[in-house]
């Protein structure tokens, strides 16, 4: 299994504030990585750099063999291969659930409408909201909306899925239904990078854990080692507070 994402010495500034400091990371195909850390530590910025929703100033980011920089002509093509699920769902409120899922396949991948709808229904069934297909996002619960957002990303048949705190905006009883859908996806062999505070999910799914603080990757370890004997003191402190 080759590596599909590679970050080399990535630095990123928001004006004067340095959000990422010398970040190095390799992700193999089908690997599942969970990133955790205190707020403001650069977790979200890191994964948003991978599909260039944020621009990095120094270093290299290589996704599926292509380098991402301001010279990248077809950044859209890379984005089409990298699905993303946001904290605030970001469904398109003017479109029905089904249309949310078929829009990008039809217009970006030029898929025929019939086929796009079949793919969409398959993915909606996978996250168990096929019966809501005709409704609009505003009529769904938060958990259902987030599962729809997951289905929407899956309809593009991405090679990599990024999750930016997918359960942070949800009521506690809805978190489980979203996590279940994500566990299913992980078992199906998707490459996933997940920013989350759900340590239960991390223990169940992640191959590797990353702990970030102040823009740096403080610790990267196999999941078992990460929870059982964390090396750095900062990680120990964080885990003691969160577990």
């Amino acid at each position: 299994m080759g590596k599909i994402i590679e970050l080399k010495n990535v630095n990123k500034w928001f004006d004067k504030f340095q959000a990422l400091k010398d970040v190095n990371l390799e992700v193999n195909q089908q690997e599942k990585i969970v990133i955790c850390g205190p707020s403001g530590s650069g977790k979200s910025t890191l994964i948003r750099c991978i599909n260039r929703l944020e621009e990095h100033q120094e270093g290299e980011i290589i996704v599926d063999g292509k380098e991402i920089s301001e010279n990248t002509k077809d950044i859209e093509k890379i984005r089409a291969e990298v699905g993303m699920v946001f904290q605030q769902f970001n469904l398109f409120p003017h479109l029905s659930i089904l249309d949310n899922c078929t829009l990008a396949p039809i217009w970006v991948k030029k898929m025929p409408k019939k086929q796009a709808e079949e793919v969409a229904m398959k993915n909606l069934e996978r996250v168990q909201i096929a019966d809501q297909a005709k409704k609009f996002p505003g009529q769904l619960s938060g958990g259902q909306q987030q599962r729809c957002a997951l289905a929407r990303a899956l309809c593009m048949e991405p090679k990599i899925m990024l999750f930016d705190e997918p359960t942070s905006a949800l009521d506690p009883e809805m978190i489980k239904e979203v996590l279940d859908a994500m566990v299913d996806l992980a078992k199906a062999g998707m490459t996933m990078i997940v920013v989350t505070h759900e340590m239960g999910f991390a223990k169940e799914v992640a191959d590797n854990m990353i702990f970030m603080d102040e823009g740096r990757i403080v610790e990267k370890a196999k999941t078992k080692d990460f929870f059982n004997n964390p090396k750095s003191d900062r990680t120990k402190l964080f885990l003691s507070q969160i577990l």
Partner: peptide
């Protein structure tokens, strides 16, 4: 801003993003 980001993350370029997602809303 999330609407722009969601459209971009699905691989839409400037014109598709604006005509399919942003302008209708």
């Amino acid at each position: 801003k999330g609407q722009y980001e969601a459209a971009k993350s699905l691989g839409m370029g400037y014109w598709r993003m604006h005509f399919l997602i942003i302008l209708p809303q």
